[in-house]
Design a protein around this nucleic acid. Structure first.
Lengths: 219, 219
DNA sequence: GAAATCCGAACGAACGTTCGAACGGAAAGT
DNA sequence: ACTTTCCGTTCGAACGTTCGTTCGGATTTC
């Protein structure tokens, strides 16, 4: 019920004691910062241990490998994002409303977990085998849920000629690039969300109305 | 005058003989593929040498370090992009026309040099010292030139409420994310360019016209 | 005192880079 | 025309470093 606990409500019962889980959450947060700053490959387990305040072998008491650290960060991030989006879509609303809430939710996650999301955006292909497959499945679900919004938007709005799939790619281009320039000190999340939604809707609805060139625009 | 030579017209006179430069260009192309596929840190000089068809110490006859490989790829890519954009902006045209040509030029570069551009997008911060500064300067110039288009677009078009700076960030979000999903077999460059321009213009002009929520849209 | 937690020391592997020698083909010498 | 010289080019072998991971035992917690 506490804000802290509610923030990370995804499954994190890897250990038996509550202390274990709490320390693991702390470890993952510090790890995400290190991975985001230096990149997954360049970041060494020694630096992670130093940032987390434990020794190098102490890390392996909480995770079995370096890749598991990366997996847990990405798996949890997409888990939270997908879960929030599912809650949003359960509430009946117009497609525009769902889109706006999706963008708000995503931007809110950017604000609170910028390192984690940067890791998700930057280190997409650093996972292998089952780790990669499981994260990919969650990413695809997040993408599909978003695409479903755009599909309903297109059904209602006959003007758009942008395919929902392409529109989703555009939208994630806008959202994922946030991690490269968003600065909590300079950008207001609410304002940015509104700007993003208005920008996307304007482009998604209007785009490709005229198939020919844009020679001269009417005033 | 040949197409091949014209394609890479930037300064590449690092060696004295023409054979040296030709082999360096070939080496950089193979290196870009390796860096794009595996990531800069994970890609080893041994893999680069193997992909380039020379031995490991043979690499160091053409470059002095691994980082110089990364630098040359990024420096040349932004050099070509900036150069092309400067040529475009020299021709008088409406802002919409300049924007369209800029996007076409960028997409054309994506098609022809996808690995290089993926490296530029993914390995922004892997350079250090002077290498980083020099590439940063070219990146900033490319950004500023693009922003200037949006500034003229806003002067002419009083409806837009998106700042040119923010608009440029949105645009590069759309363009840079291309390297993650663009497939030459599935996507037509011309069609994609037109779609991108129409999408961006629609969003850039319309965005934030209404400061309040988007509750329900009129049919 | 049993279980959970932590760490100093060290392992094998892979990394970027270097050294010195060998190769090749064209210019120079005779 | 033949040899010699020379320099751009190539590579086998190896160096020192750092990496992820492990082992055995010490320390803490309940």
């Amino acid at each position: 019920m506490e804000p802290k606990a509610a923030e990370l409500h995804a499954e994190l019962s890897r250990g038996k004691t509550a202390r274990f889980d709490a320390k693991l959450v702390h470890l993952l947060a510090r790890t995400a910062r290190v991975f985001a700053d230096q990149g997954y490959e360049k970041a060494s387990m020694r630096k992670v241990a130093l940032a987390a305040g434990i020794s190098l072998p102490g890390l392996y008491h909480y995770v079995s490998s370096k890749e598991e650290l990366l997996f847990l960060i990405q798996y949890q991030a997409f888990g939270v994002l997908t879960e929030e989006l599912e809650v949003i879509l359960e509430r009946p609303a117009a497609p525009e409303g769902h889109l706006e809430e999706m963008v708000r939710s995503h931007v809110r996650y950017v604000v609170r977990h910028l390192p984690e999301l940067k890791v998700c955006t930057t280190e997409l292909d650093s996972l292998k085998g089952d780790n990669y497959e499981h994260v990919l499945k969650r990413r695809q679900r997040y993408f599909e849920l978003t695409r479903s919004i755009l599909e309903r938007l297109r059904e209602q709005d006959r003007g758009s000629r942008v395919e929902p799939n392409l529109g989703a790619l555009y939208l994630f281009g806008l959202l994922n690039w946030l991690v490269m320039w968003f600065d909590p000190k300079r950008n207001d999340p609410t304002e940015l969300s509104e700007s993003l939604v208005a920008f996307f809707l304007g482009g998604y609805r209007v785009a490709a109305l005229s198939g020919s060139r844009t020679e001269k625009v009417e005033k």
